[in-house]
Amino acid sequence: MAASARIFSSANFNSHVKNVRFQLPCRNRQRLHLRSRQRVSKLSLGSPNQRFLSLTSFANFSPAQFSVSGGCLDRIFFGTKENSCNWNFAPTRISDGPHGGLFDDEKGPEVTVVVLGWLGSKPKHLRRYVEMYNSKGIHAVTFVASVTDVLWFDLGKKLEERIENLAQELAEWLSNSSNGRDRFLMFHTFSNTGWLAYGSILVNLRDRKDLMEKIKGCVVDSGGDPNLDPKVWAAGFTTALLKKNSSAIYPSPDKSTGPQSGNMENGLKTEPKETFSIEPWMLSTFEKLFSYLLNLPFAKEKLLRIVSCLSTDQPHCPQLYLYSSGDKVIPFQAIESFMEQQRRAGKEVWCFNFGPSPHVDHYRTFPDVYTSKLDSFLKKCLSSVASPMPS
């Protein structure tokens, strides 16, 4: 028997968005628990033959205008079938390469970078970053969130519990060194989804001052907007759903300043002339939805607690903001304002503006510049725990 999930139906909510109804595919959900102790939570929301999305009563939009396959909906709402939290351990010995090894012996400290993906990302999208860190002798653990994860974070405890489990696992790793080597953490976040996940981890760890001192740096790629702006959330969800059909993956034509084009690997993508007819409708719909959701007392309280921690209780370690004026999801002015706030609070802030580069696309578009900025930042962050990397 099919069961539908309604996102609010009060009269107050209907004044913003009318009759939002999702009918989701059946799927067994597997949640990662600590140290390979796994719990399985089964969620039955329909039969395999009832894989469709029904949206009605929105600004004269007809669902018949587009169709989405069941497999596509699986990927959109439930993400990848792979584990969303994966450890990738660096080899003990690092051969000479373009990045150079930073920790390449069995006696020095161990460093793990926590790579927190953008909304709708998959482990395969983070692979190039994992490989870059592993080539320096740095372990990497990846964490991704699907659209459903984030919606359920606002409405329930699903994502919150996953982040709590990740924070506990990181605390265990920092505290339980079997070989006597010192252990340290870094973070590399993408978009506001990864950045807020980082803030949630800090909330879970901030009572452990001994562990907070082991966080040596944070890289914020295309994120760092502390404002609970429905337009930003709408842009993020629309981009996550449309993926390659979103205009946000293309550069803004009026943002011409940035790194020299000679540093680009594949060149800036050109936005096709065809319009994305569904995109304006989705932006408007999600903006109405989040105008309501972000003002719900319990959701607003949770998010403000995370933003407050990011604003005032970040570890005393350097922060690197990699952003662009051409980002169509996160306003660069909001990032620059937050960076200035952090500087006034006495934090060491590094930054680089990639100009026309699209949202979370800076490494692909400007790989040489991105790698250079990251290498310099790592030298600064880890200079107290390891010998400097080769120039």
Results as ranks from 00 to 15, higher is better:
295 N>V: 14
297 P>H: 03
298 F>M: 11
298 F>Q: 13
300 K>H: 02
300 K>S: 05
302 K>L: 12
302 K>W: 08
304 L>A: 05
304 L>P: 05
305 R>H: 08
305 R>L: 15
306 I>R: 00
307 V>L: 13
308 S>A: 08
309 C>V: 12
310 L>I: 06
311 S>Q: 13
312 T>M: 15
313 D>I: 02
314 Q>G: 02
314 Q>L: 14
315 P>I: 09
315 P>R: 07
316 H>G: 07
316 H>S: 14
318 P>T: 07
318 P>H: 00
320 L>T: 00
321 Y>E: 13
321 Y>F: 15
321 Y>A: 05
322 L>Y: 07
323 Y>T: 08
323 Y>A: 00
323 Y>E: 11
324 S>I: 04
325 S>F: 02
325 S>M: 08
326 G>V: 06
327 D>W: 07
328 K>W: 11
329 V>R: 00
329 V>I: 15
329 V>C: 02
330 I>D: 04
330 I>E: 06
331 P>S: 01
332 F>I: 12
332 F>A: 12
334 A>M: 09
334 A>S: 14
335 I>S: 03
339 M>Q: 15
339 M>V: 09
340 E>S: 14
341 Q>L: 14
342 Q>S: 10
342 Q>K: 13
342 Q>H: 09
343 R>K: 15
343 R>A: 10
343 R>G: 07
343 R>T: 15
344 R>E: 15
344 R>V: 14
344 R>A: 12
346 G>L: 06
347 K>V: 10
347 K>R: 13
349 V>T: 06
349 V>S: 04
350 W>S: 13
350 W>I: 13
351 C>V: 07
351 C>M: 13
351 C>G: 11
352 F>A: 12
352 F>L: 15
353 N>P: 03
354 F>K: 00
355 G>Y: 07
356 P>K: 04
356 P>V: 07
356 P>D: 12
356 P>H: 06
356 P>Y: 03
